[in-house]
Design a protein around this nucleic acid. Structure first.
Lengths: 245, 245
DNA sequence: TAAGCGAACTTGTACAAACAAGCCAGACCA
DNA sequence: TGGTCTGGCTTGTTTGTACAAGTTCGCTTA
């Protein structure tokens, strides 16, 4: 592990455990450099991590201040429902309701960077949290990964983890579109809510390290089950508001 | 403007206008350094900006690749409904429906970092996009900024901009919680939808550069009007999934 | 033909130095 | 008392160097 990551970890721990409460000032770069016997550049890299996480605010001339004190999740935790649930102390389960190879629609072809009509794998999954159905996942996998997905156990807990262990696939980049929709008849039945009741929709496209799209998914959460959280700032804003088409 | 910001801007423009299409490789750091006659460190800082924006993917040993080609919004555009609408070519308007000073509830006191019972300003606004009502904003302002807010025109288009011009207030950090809720009777009437129909809810707390909370808000968008978009990666994940309380 | 190896290339990490720019508090002055 | 100003502190920017670590691709070899 890199030196700056260690330093960032130490500082993060100190913030989370309350050594530096919200609103408090962090030590200066010079002091941190002395304390960790590292160069100033290395310390700057470390605090840049915390700034990116939204835990720390930074502006020229003034001491850095603590903005938040919650542990932030890794990309893997965000991407994998099972990994997230486990790290939060919940019990996750899932079941494949339908799985079908079919030609890609034109919009899917664009998002998966394949030719229109190329074969893709469409999977419908119901996910439960502590036994309660909370999420309907409609995932479309690119053709080249379809065989590995079809080999999975239909009640497989963590698709992400299984795909990593079986073919070494790692998800690295994602784009997420979040909005609200009304539950259709099938969704209402599966999630145990009334038709037309609100669902939180997350449409995502995920790619490998090489930038090759693996899957695009339409995930619908029962209202009141999960919330998405984002911290941002003038210097780091990954959240964007868009008009719906 | 800093050199690395210029370089980042040039590269961003090149990506957006299609010189480097999605999936393409960026020139190496050495080549960019030569082309812009800058040190490698400066070039690294420039591409780090693009990586943080999610436009570019980066991993050790391999050329950087283009992941997306959409202009990302500034913090101000995300925070200010009016500024966002204007930059997207829409016409935004807003009207204050209610404005009232009252003691802070305990949860508001925590989020605004004031004492419970301290006076806050609660404002209810209806926002329109091209004349259509799309958003109900329930904003609670900390007491110290209340006088400036009360001086604003009730039909003021951009609260953010007016507050900047009148008292020099700049919003710098934000935390956002996004989920879906059902429309209540009043919300349904104001937004022109049926009661119980889905709304996209964004609860946010915004602070100044100094880390001082200014406002917390409960914004509810009519379903189908706006979508939130986030790009992330293994190295930069500001999006987090949380269980609803 | 296919696996393996290695060299060249590319990004990541760390250190050092110097200057620029913004913040803050205490001193000073009207 | 109140405002201004200055000097020290702190973060931001840029350059340079050196090495570490991962990728890629062509060549060799079995």
């Amino acid at each position: 592990m890199a030196r700056y990551e260690q330093i960032a970890g130490d500082l993060r721990d100190a913030i989370i455990c309350g050594d530096y409460p919200i609103g408090a000032q962090l030590p200066s770069e010079a002091e941190l450099a002395a304390r960790f016997s590292a160069a100033r550049g290395t310390v700057r890299q470390a605090v840049a991590v915390l700034v990116a996480e939204g835990l720390v605010g930074s502006r020229q001339g003034a001491r850095r201040i603590v903005l938040g004190s919650e542990r932030s999740q890794s990309f893997a935790e965000l991407h994998s429902f099972a990994q997230w649930a486990r790290s939060m102390g919940y019990r996750a389960s899932g079941i494949v309701l339908a799985s079908q190879r079919r030609p890609a629609t034109s919009s899917e072809a664009v998002r998966l960077a394949v030719a229109p009509g190329d074969e893709v794998l469409s999977v419908l999954r119901l996910r439960r949290l502590d036994g309660e159905p909370v999420l309907i996942e409609r995932t479309v996998y690119a053709g080249w990964i379809a065989p590995a997905v079809e080999k999975l156990d239909p009640s497989c807990e963590s698709v992400t983890q299984e795909l990593y262990e079986s073919v070494g696939l790692v998800f690295a980049y994602g784009e997420h579109l979040i909005d609200a929709v009304a539950a259709g008849a099938e969704e209402a039945r599966l999630l145990g809510v009334r038709r037309g009741s609100p669902l939180l929709r997350q449409r995502r496209t995920t790619t490998t390290q090489e930038g090759r799209p693996v899957e695009c998914s339409d995930d619908r959460y029962r209202a009141g089950s999960v919330t998405f959280s984002i911290r941002n700032s003038t210097s780091a804003n990954s959240l964007v508001r868009r008009a719906a088409e």
